[in-house]
Simulated assay, not measured.
Amino acid sequence: MADRAELQVREIQDHDLDEVIGLWREAGVSRPWNDPAADIAFARRGPHSTVLIGAREGRIVATAMVGEDGHRGWVYYVAISPELQRSGLGRAMMAAAEDWLRTRGVWKMQLLVRSDNAQAKGFYEQLGYRDTETTCFQKIIAADG
């Protein structure tokens, strides 16, 4: 089990972009229809969201994109280097995301898990997250979306 103290968590910086995108691809959290660079830029454009990175020995090994919408907090792109999965880093990044929200007065955090991702569902359930038994609807409203 990884010690959270071993992981240095901070907000993403410009020079981290390529390494973060590489980690997202390696960990399988990015999808072909999403532009990771655009998602990062969007998260960084204001004070209501960011990308947290976890580094060990100067290498980015974990991420969590976190934000709040004025009512609830959300987390996306939770990624751990494949060789370090199941070592406690996912738990550490989720705790960091929760802390980021807590400091902003947000008391409820939500996330989306693909219905066929049993491993992720089990992970989040172990952390105390519960299926709200709601359905998420989506509509692409941007012409280039």
Rank of each mutant, 00 (worst) to 15 (best):
P32L: 10
T135D: 14
A92S: 08
D116W: 04
A92M: 03
R114T: 03
N117T: 00
L89T: 02
V9C: 03
S81F: 11
G128P: 05
Y77H: 06
G46R: 13
R72Y: 13
R31T: 05
L89Q: 08
Q138W: 06
H71E: 10
T132V: 09
A142G: 06
E125G: 13
S49G: 14
R72M: 00
E83I: 04
T132G: 10
A142M: 00
R72G: 06
L89H: 02
R44E: 11
A27K: 00
D18H: 01
D3S: 12
Q13A: 10
T50F: 13
A64P: 06
D131L: 06
E19A: 15
I60M: 01
R86C: 13
R25G: 02
F123Y: 11
N117S: 06
H15M: 04
I80G: 10
A118H: 12
G54V: 00
I12A: 03
P82K: 01
E6D: 11
Y129A: 13
R31Y: 09
Q126K: 13
T50S: 15
L127D: 14
R130T: 09
W100I: 08
W100E: 07
A120Y: 08
W33E: 15
P36Q: 01
G54F: 00
N117F: 00
G46F: 14
A55F: 11
Q138H: 07
D69F: 00
E19V: 01
T135I: 13
A62T: 02
F137N: 03
G28P: 11
S87G: 12
A62N: 00
L7E: 06
P32E: 14
G54D: 02
A92H: 03
R44S: 02
Y77N: 15
Q126M: 07
D18S: 02
G70D: 13
S49L: 02
I141P: 05
D18A: 09
R59V: 15
L17S: 03
A143P: 11
L111Y: 04
V51T: 08
H48Q: 10
V20A: 03
H15K: 05
K108N: 12
N34E: 14
V75G: 04
E125T: 10
A2S: 13
G73F: 01
A55I: 01
H71C: 08
G90P: 07
K139H: 14
I53S: 04
G46L: 07
T135A: 05
L101K: 01
C136R: 07
R91K: 14
G67N: 10
D35T: 06
W107A: 12
V29G: 01
G67Q: 10
D35V: 05
R102H: 14
I60P: 14
C136K: 06
Q119G: 02
R44Y: 07
R44T: 04
G88R: 01
I21N: 00
S87C: 06
R56N: 12
E19K: 06
R130F: 12
D16I: 01
A27N: 07
Q8T: 15
A43M: 04
Y76D: 04
